[in-house]
Design a protein around this nucleic acid. Structure first.
Lengths: 210, 210
DNA sequence: GACGATTTGGACAAGAGTGTCTAAATTTGT
DNA sequence: ACAAATTTAGACACTCTTGTCCAAATCGTC
């Protein structure tokens, strides 16, 4: 395991103040001196960790956004699949979990660093998702007023049932992710879908592959 | 300011490891020895802080749930008012912000303590809100399949636009809270409201008083 | 095989924080 | 006003951590 990977784990578990360089070195399988050789001090190491995580997470999110169903066959199933991929590949994986925790934990201590994240992360990914929704709406699959609002509400809905787990830093099981996404997408489509389908519930299988 | 209040602030800012007892004593306006007299050690003090916050937050949430509109005049405006009260009085205030941060930061270090929170917090408040929604549905104001899912989605929707702010430990402005609640409730009612109102947008003022 | 670069382990100084102790000062109740 | 309880300031031992220094060992490359 690389030094920054090991450091990410320790910083997440112990917080910045509680993180021990000796422990990081041990988990990385190198000597303490090597840690200091590569990264001048604890703070520089921390910054390197956040930058690394932000970069990797963003790459994953954009790769997943590229799989957005622009020409859906079954709109409900396709959106559920997209939501599940987004969660499993970007938010629930190791990088996503770590980055989320570091932002929550140390966000106030490094305003510039996390302002940067905010711009590069939600500031770029949310509009990208909104654009995909706008396209679907333009194609006649939706009736939405504001694509940006719709995108944020989509994310809020498909994660609605995972909040408590995220709070405690846990990782939801795959079936919980699928369940939350399924319920969220159904509500989303009841609100914005073309046919205001009544209570009728169709049976669909979520495609959870990458 | 009491010792636990001061400790709450310092634990939140600095994390458990980074929190300094001298600083807590100074902010509480007492000597360090007094802190040790009241709470045997740092860990006991931390536990007292979390218990205190959990208790106060729960009281606030249940007080707010008591204002749920059981017999709504204007359903949309009443739900927006409820959502705004919930956010302003329970989630965005000092106690809510601190409890959220402590759970995110130290949740993994004290599993029993935060399992307790989970039972006393979401475990009791979510069903309570769900029961109110079930009552509205039974009264013919809604068409919902599962009140529990609907309650979680309601919370997810009205907070959808505040996520990034919560992440960084910030406090959203009142108008942001109202905006998010308004958009969320409108979408919620488009999905579950009795009359599947089209894109039509009515003008309503959110009652944001306590 | 030899040479330069990197890594290693261990020692080290400096600083910070926890928790204890004690005697003096202050508050509280009566 | 007095006695008991509490609070205070300061010193203290102890532990832990950071960051530096250095000589020996290891590695990579030619």
């Amino acid at each position: 395991m690389s030094i920054v990977d090991a450091a990410a784990g320790v910083f997440c578990r112990e917080g910045f103040a509680g993180a021990n360089i000796d422990l990081i070195a041990a988990e990385a399988g190198v000597s303490r001196q090597t840690v200091y050789n590569h990264h001048r001090d604890k703070e520089k190491l921390f910054i390197a960790v956040v930058r690394d995580l932000t970069e990797r997470c963003n790459a994953g999110i954009f790769a997943t956004i590229a799989t957005f169903p622009d020409q859906p066959g079954d709109l409900e199933a396709d959106l559920i699949g997209f939501a599940v991929r987004l969660n499993q590949n970007c938010i629930c994986n190791r990088d996503g979990k770590f980055l989320r925790k570091l932002i929550q934990t140390e966000g106030e201590r490094y305003p510039e660093l996390f302002a940067e994240w905010r711009e590069q992360g939600p500031g770029r990914t949310w509009p990208a998702i909104a654009a995909r929704f706008a396209r679907l709406a333009y194609g006649g699959h939706f009736t939405i007023d504001d694509p940006d609002v719709a995108a944020r509400q989509f994310l809020g809905l498909v994660n609605a049932e995972l909040q408590a787990t995220f709070m405690l830093g846990g990782t939801p099981r795959e079936d919980e992710v699928v369940q939350s996404a399924t319920n969220g997408v159904r509500t989303f489509l009841r609100a914005f879908g073309k046919r205001p389908s009544p209570t009728g519930v169709k049976k669909h299988t979520a495609l959870a592959n990458a």
